[in-house]
Design a protein around this nucleic acid. Sequence first.
DNA 1: CGCGTTTCAATCGTCATACGAATCAGGGGG
DNA 2: CCCCCTGATTCGTATGACGATTGAAACGCG
Lengths: 235, 235
Amino acid sequence: MAVPDRQTLHDRVLGVLGPAIAGGEYRPGDVLTLERIEQQFGVSRTVAREAVRVLESIQLVVTRPRTGVTVTPTERWNVFDPQLIRWRLAGRGRDAQLRSLTALRAAVEPAAAAQAAVNATDDQRARLAEVGRRLDATGRAGELDKFLDLDIEFHGLVLLASGNEMFAGLSDVVAEVLTGRTVHHLMPPTPEEKALRLHALVASSIAAGDAEVAEVAMRGIVAEVVAAVADPELR
Amino acid sequence: MAVPDRQTLHDRVLGVLGPAIAGGEYRPGDVLTLERIEQQFGVSRTVAREAVRVLESIQLVVTRPRTGVTVTPTERWNVFDPQLIRWRLAGRGRDAQLRSLTALRAAVEPAAAAQAAVNATDDQRARLAEVGRRLDATGRAGELDKFLDLDIEFHGLVLLASGNEMFAGLSDVVAEVLTGRTVHHLMPPTPEEKALRLHALVASSIAAGDAEVAEVAMRGIVAEVVAAVADPELR
DNA sequence: CGCGTTTCAATCGTCATACGAATCAGGGGG
DNA sequence: CCCCCTGATTCGTATGACGATTGAAACGCG
């Protein structure tokens, strides 16, 4: 066991450089040269270049001849990139990231639920109902870890069943947010009864094809989440 | 003149490979080898690798030793990547992409407007009012090109003023959608009177700090957009 | 002294080549 | 019949070299 995950070298470089930039250890305008990266990590030009190339595609940096690799102003960053989101959630600015993502969830998930009620396949409706039932059971039993997994599956299913690929593309992000919320103890020790009922309502409305109720119910869920994340007394 | 834009080689490779994969010319499961890319484009391994590396970071492909570079199933793609969005808007699947993006707009922009009413700086409120006025004027004058520019600026401002970086990160996407809508003639030759009034209402509500009205007004705007894009008679 | 031009050096961009590592397939041995 | 070993394929990484780009300093001219 414990064979340290075979990682490529550029992944390791990226895994240091990315979080460092995302976490603000380098400020916009700071300059890295390829040579410095090579030396700092003891890697070849090839590896350094590939790592930088990826950072560039996330628009964390720009590279120009004679100047080097310059850190980009934050507002140009590709904030939807899952890697970047993970880096930011792991470092400082985690709370801010969690809040902005939660606002995004609040905007998107009700719409996704409505569309899911219209577009879901029979199979998806059935699975949603099933996951909803198990969610309810583990919630009432207070099994938080299992609840988290099911919660992630639940919301992922809704986003997927919406039939909108952009919505579906957010499932990983939602998973990160849910996980982060649990890890940072922004979750009540036992899921609230109200939340459980709302999840059940979302599932049944989607199963029944009732877009309006599905949307309202989901709005209720995310409203609670927004409140929890915004609550200053928990930080 | 006509000095062909100095582009790096990997950008050119990427500019062919990316759209090709995004446009479905390679199917999920298809395999490219680095060697084939080298030969096809007449470039060195370095260049081929860097292009592939970027594709990998968008999750269009995965690479494994002995196997090669394999095209990933669509649902794993990083659909929020601006590059990918542009590639898809440029090729086939353009309509589908336009529709899914519009649904995303419809979900996000009302929330953004509401938050903007709360969080916008004085300067942003003023600029929004100003842009709103000019939007109205060019709209009534029927100057479509100028209207498009102002419309892009308007929606970008709202997203930015929301103070939520995720929302702000969508301004480029919204710009693409608005442009695409005009290019594909999903816009009425003269902007509708109702849309103009709603834009004005959004601007004034945000300026006045009225989140509720700003949200409702924006909802009115995007509802019209959804209808226009969904309208089958225009395709 | 001011300003445009030239020179220079730093850094990226690209290439060719070589070797190691991972992985899958198939053959040989138990 | 199963397991292990061997080999082939492809990526992963390193190295050294040269050209291209560009910003800044040095230079020369008015």
